[in-house]
Simulated scan of single mutants.
Amino acid sequence: MPQTEKQMTIPPELPEILKQYTKSAIKTQPSDLIEWSTRYFTALTKGEPLPIKERPERITLSNWAVLTPQFLKELHTKLGGRLTIETNELLDMWKAQGLPEDLFTSIIKVGCLPDEIEWLKFLALACSSLGVTIAKTLKIATEILSSCHENGSARIPFSTFQFLYTFLADVDGEVSGTQVNRMLTYLQQEVIGPDGLIKVSDFMNNPKVRLE
């Protein structure tokens, strides 16, 4: 009688492990992904510090163009105010600027973005590959989205900031909902003026604001 094959069991924590692995790969951008992945999972198994490093604001991959806030600003302008875009269309626009396709794919995976992409979510994750921390990511995103400046400080509607911050904190997984709500409530009640706009200086230079 043939031996029954043993059914494979997928650990329930696997999706979260893969999500954190992908985020770490985006932050580190290793030159040798296979070698780095081996070190990553070995360290994870042994409970040792993971081989993750912060990178400078620019990203260079292979012979691809360098990802910069300016590239993302150009993409945002080309979208002309559209809130959503098909994945294939955005990928074509991304590659037309010579940007790395691997990074595009990683952004989609980290955000679990569907075929119909919410542009602000994609932009937030693309900015996170430049800013690393949530605060720096929001600074870059605000400067890209801002259509006006006050005393040299970029400004966006607080509702947009709220959406970006909530989304980034959720993807990060290390910032509690309580912390997010506390910061948003403080900003809305104590910082935001009657124009409903938030400036970079409101959350980057305010000692009472801790977004991480």
Score class of each variant (00 low, 15 high):
S147L: 07
P11S: 09
K78V: 14
D115M: 12
Y165V: 15
N181C: 07
K199P: 02
R210H: 12
F41D: 01
T68K: 13
E35Q: 07
L184N: 02
K208L: 11
Q20E: 00
I198T: 01
I117H: 13
L83T: 08
A141I: 07
T68E: 02
V191G: 01
T178W: 07
E89A: 05
V180M: 03
Y165I: 15
I144P: 09
D172A: 12
N88I: 04
N205I: 01
S24V: 05
N88T: 09
R155L: 11
I156W: 03
T178V: 09
N88E: 08
P56W: 06
N205G: 10
K19M: 09
G131E: 00
T160N: 02
Q7H: 07
T105M: 07
K6M: 12
G177F: 02
L61A: 13
I34T: 14
P207L: 01
P157G: 01
D195S: 02
P69L: 15
L44T: 09
M8W: 06
L123M: 12
P194T: 00
L14E: 03
A43H: 00
T87L: 07
L50W: 00
D92V: 06
Q162M: 08
P207A: 04
P2W: 05
E5V: 07
L184M: 02
N63L: 09
E74R: 10
Q188D: 00
G152S: 06
T137R: 15
D202H: 13
R55W: 09
L61E: 09
D102A: 10
T142I: 03
P15A: 11
V110E: 03
L44F: 10
